Every structure is written in C-alpha cells, then in structure tokens.
Simulated scan of single mutants.
Amino acid sequence: MKAAVLYEVNQPLVIEDVSLPKPGPREVLIRTTVAGLCHSDLHFMEGLYPHPLPAVLGHESAGVVEQVGSDVTYVKPGDHVVTCLSVFCGTCDNCTTGRTVLCTDTTVKLLPGASNRMQWSKPEKLHQFLNLSSFAEQMLVHENAIVKIRKEMPLDLAALIGCGVITGYGAVVNTAKVTAGETVAVIGCGGVGMAAINGAQIAGAGRIIAIDTNPAKLQLATKLGATDIINPADGDVVKQVRDLTNGGVHHSFEVLGRKETAEQAFGMLASGGTATIVGMIPFGQKIELHGFDFLRERRIQGSSMGSNHFRVDMPRLVDFYLRGRLHLEDWISAKLKLSEINEGFANMKAGKTLRSVIVFDS
C-alpha cells in the first residue's frame, strides 16, 4: 500500500510502499477512505513536538473495516468507522472513573515508538503515529481506537469528527460544560475553532464571539453560530471582548496553540470565568498570567481531545449532522490525492484552507 512518510522534521512527506501484518488479537484492519490534514500533524512535521522518525503521520480519518483479529466483537468487515487517537483500555483508574481520554494502559494506548504494526523493505523501523497513521491506504489499529457509525453518514465528513470536530465540540460541551445563556469567546477560526463555535451554538450559549484575522473565516463563523466577530487587526483583543460583553466572558477557548493567545484567553474572562486551552502550545513553552486575576476565581484549564467519550460523542455528532445542526460541508476547503499531501500542508500553513482531506481510491 501507499503511505506518506515523514523522514525528517521540516522536510516534505515522501510517498512510500508500506505493508501491514494481519490483525492480531483485538486488532482491526481498516481500508482508509478519507484522512484529514490536521494542524497537530504539522506540529510534529515542524518538530514542535517530538516523535520517533521515520513515521507515517495522520490521525483524523474514516474508513471501512476489512479484517478483524481474534477476540474482536465490536466490529465486523464492512462496518463504517471513524478513528480516534484516544484509544482506551476500559480498565485503568482513569477509564473506570469516566476519563477514558486519559487512559494510562500503555499496552493498549501504545507510547510513541512502541508499536510494531508497520512494515517496509528498509532496515530502520517505521513508526506508527498516535496508534493510527492514517496517511496510508490501510490502518491497523486496536479495536478501542474506532467507533462504528451509521452508513448513511458520508465518510468524507465523518473523518472530520475523528479529531477536529470532537476536539472543538468536546472542549465546549465536555471540558468547559458550557450551559445555555453563557457567553463564549473562541480565539482562532480554523477547523477546531469552528467546531467549538458550532458546539457552543448546540449547547445554547447566549453569545458566541469568534476571533480571527481572516475575514472569510469570520464570516463562515457567523454561519456556524457566532453572534459577534472580532479581528485582532482592529486593536487590543482583550479590550474588544471586555467592551463587547461589559466586563468579560464566562468561557474562552484558545485553539491556536500560542503563548500570547493563551494569555489573552485568560485576560478576557469575567470574574468566575474559565479559559480552556485547546491548542497545542509548542513543547517547553510557558505562559504568564497575572496572579491577582485568580483572586476573582478566574480559572484556566487544558482540554485533551475535547475530554471525549468518543464511542458516545461521535455517534451523537453524526446525528447532529444528519439533523442539520452540525454544518460539516462548509469546512472542507479541498479534496486531495495522497500525492498532493505536501501541497495541502503548504496551503494550511499559508492560511488558505479551513480543512483539506485526502480521499483514497476505493
């Protein structure tokens, strides 16, 4: 099969011939249908987060089950599935207390470099990425890394749910637990930010402020639920939000992964408000906050993959789409072949796309 391999950081991905063994116990072989290009992949490509190389990246995907290994009871060949990097064991302390996204069982949620699922003709080891590696025509994964979905759901749109949608929506609904009538600000209107905006609308937020420097993205944000838009080019973002809300928001969401915007997210809170950091701030970078602000019970927290329970959350998101409440068609800017993957990432870096997807031949 063909796969896009990252050999070195800050170098183009290379299309190579790769193979996978037959599924072992509790493993599932999937024919990849669609894989989204996510900014998280770009972080690893640029060396902002470490990972053993060479590796096949990709983690936002949907496909069709081809084979199952022994002891697999959840899926069968022909099932349509969405993948999720939040693979879980179901028995560790975090899993049994409802926080499967923080599973600690490294025999199921394999650490970087531990997987031996990918094979090729070269002597060096080819590494699986986040237990998935979806920039390939097939994936071999643990059965607890996938969720079955209804076959009437288009797979190109379903793939988006696997990372961008669940991350943004989940940050609002699961992590922050936004309730009806509360005010929300979202910093960054990329794919995850749009999911947070759409999620805030579904949650019933009273006011949703979209913040971005791209006027086209701001206009799309209004279609997805934003009631107000702010462009940082027009002046101090924190002041604009405070002026607009007469003192600050109940919830802010930072989805860009930058020090300055994380600090702004905290600064725009009303007393008692919560800032949720969704973006991947570069490894080792620190943020600075005013200690006095904590005296007014302002809080800051992280969100991992939208604090998801993906076996429950993703089918619900599919239902939201099929009922017209989740507007996924507006998110896909380009459909590409695997051979065009580097062009897709270049357009992402240039801010030309909201979400590009690789569509594999059936």
Rank of each mutant, 00 (worst) to 15 (best):
R258P: 00
H59N: 06
A180F: 10
L126P: 07
N342V: 06
K349H: 12
P50K: 06
V178F: 05
A226C: 11
M118Q: 14
T353K: 04
T107P: 06
L53I: 13
L20C: 05
G113T: 00
L57N: 08
A185H: 03
E288F: 13
N198S: 14
R258A: 15
F135L: 09
N246V: 01
V172S: 01
A262L: 02
Q138F: 12
A158E: 10
Y49D: 11
Q201T: 09
F320M: 04
T213W: 00
D156F: 04
G291W: 10
A185Q: 10
S304Y: 15
H59P: 03
R325I: 05
T353P: 03
P21G: 04
V238W: 00
D361W: 05
L157P: 02
P232N: 05
F310Q: 12
G284M: 11
D105G: 11
E143S: 02
I149G: 04
G351A: 10
A35C: 15
E143I: 00
E16S: 05
G284E: 08
C84V: 12
L102V: 09
I230S: 11
K349I: 02
L295K: 08
Y74S: 15
G324M: 10
M153T: 12
M280V: 11
S61G: 07
T91V: 11
F266T: 00
G113E: 11
G164M: 07
V82Y: 09
K349Q: 15
A136L: 01
Q240K: 09
S19C: 04
